[in-house]
Design a protein around this nucleic acid. Structure first.
Lengths: 225, 225
DNA sequence: TTAGAATTCAAACGTTTGTTTGAATTGATG
DNA sequence: CATCAATTCAAACAAACGTTTGAATTCTAA
């Protein structure tokens, strides 16, 4: 009826669905977000999600892929650059950590949508659904492999298993930190919701991660020192 | 029809529901676990949950409370003991960390059910549901307050906000680590499923946390050193 | 302008969800 | 043994879920 535009272009419908779905997934979780909530908020027909994406599961994957692909791409790019700068020599652990964690932190600090996505991604790691589990394994396979190799070259004296544990811990710390984890947020009083929270958090998290990475390994008896 | 016992005692029905619910919640998440799955696996009638607990939400809270109450109780007990041992003087940060994190790690290492519960608890932190959020805030209020105070007394030179950030990071690292986070588990190759995984993880995590806690604070410009 | 593909739409599909009901059964107490 | 409360049970409830359908509409090209 409008003189200018009476309906959305096909691509605009897609991106509006993706934007709204990301916001709702982040706010309520995948299961608690219904197709009717998504299409309602997006102002599109209920059948639009199935038409454009096939199913709700496919939409979930598409929402995650949209920003995760570029994110892991820039992680690999950063590691490539660091290795090139090192010229054959192993890259320093701190540089590896920095190149792995600066991309997501910049994404989270860059825009509201970026913060929203990282919050969603942090929650996604704890999703037990096989579909999401398989998706994450596929998406992270390459980047984790590259960084594991880089760590092993940088710390040849440290057993691989120890490196994997620390990588696991670091991923968990960042994941929870950017996810906000509202409960802990309220408990600790740290406000992750504010727009500039990520800028203030990033250097603190990076320092914490490097401190953890450099911590002395526990002896065979479990004693720390 | 059995000569020995034809039905369950009322309390046995309750605990069987709690046990089965905990296992299913940990395996599939709260939303993806239906009342019919719970009552079916427990071998009780569908209406039993509503009769004994009132609602599914109430069952969720009861499952969490059952082990979280004693867990946070022993945390406070450990801090009490540490403060008594210090006799008026501030408790060393490493001792505070140890007293906070050793209880959950022991719980996770003690039994399959303990590991299962800690895995569930780790996932619970990322649940966006208001009901769970409010529940966690209430349950953690006291213990977080006590430990925050202890940290502030131990590190008077460090601003409160910095302490809260680090507490937040440490909680995230442990939470993710014990939750297993199957995706990362597969990616990093770290097997958290095995029975003795927690015993091997605990000292490594503790060392990592202390390293992060002791890391240098970033300067006002965000530089680490 | 017209034919055909792409997209939108309202309506309904069959399932599954958590919860409730009222009768049947069990356990404890007198 | 009789009584009453506690518990279990099969059955049904309304509501919400993801998905499908076929017609209506819009867009694209010839």
């Amino acid at each position: 009826m409008d003189a200018r535009r009476t309906s959305l272009s096909a691509n605009e419908t897609r991106t509006r669905i993706l934007d709204v779905a990301q916001a709702l997934f982040a706010a309520h979780g995948f299961d608690a977000t219904s197709m009717r909530m998504i299409t309602g908020d997006a102002g599109v027909n209920l059948a639009a999600v199935n038409y454009h994406f096939g199913s709700k599961d496919a939409l979930v994957q598409e929402v995650l892929k949209r920003h995760l692909r570029p994110l892991n791409g820039s992680r690999i790019q950063a590691l490539d650059a660091a290795e090139a700068a090192a010229g054959g020599a192993p890259v320093k652990p701190s540089v590896i950590v920095e190149s792995f964690f600066s991309s997501p932190l910049e994404l989270a600090a860059g825009s509201d949508a970026g913060r929203e996505f990282m919050r969603l991604l942090g929650r996604t790691f704890t999703e037990p659904s096989p579909m999401i589990r398989d998706f994450l394994v596929t998406e992270y396979e390459e980047v984790i492999g590259r960084y594991r190799e880089a760590f092993c070259r940088a710390l040849p004296a440290v057993p691989v298993e120890e490196i994997l544990w620390r990588l696991h811990f670091m991923l968990g710390a960042m994941s929870h930190a950017v996810a906000g984890v509202d409960s802990l947020q309220v408990l600790t009083g740290v406000k992750v919701d504010e727009p500039d929270a990520m800028q203030r958090m990033a250097p603190r998290l990076m320092s914490f991660l490097l401190g953890g990475l450099r911590a002395p390994l526990p002896g065979p008896d479990g004693r720390i020192e």
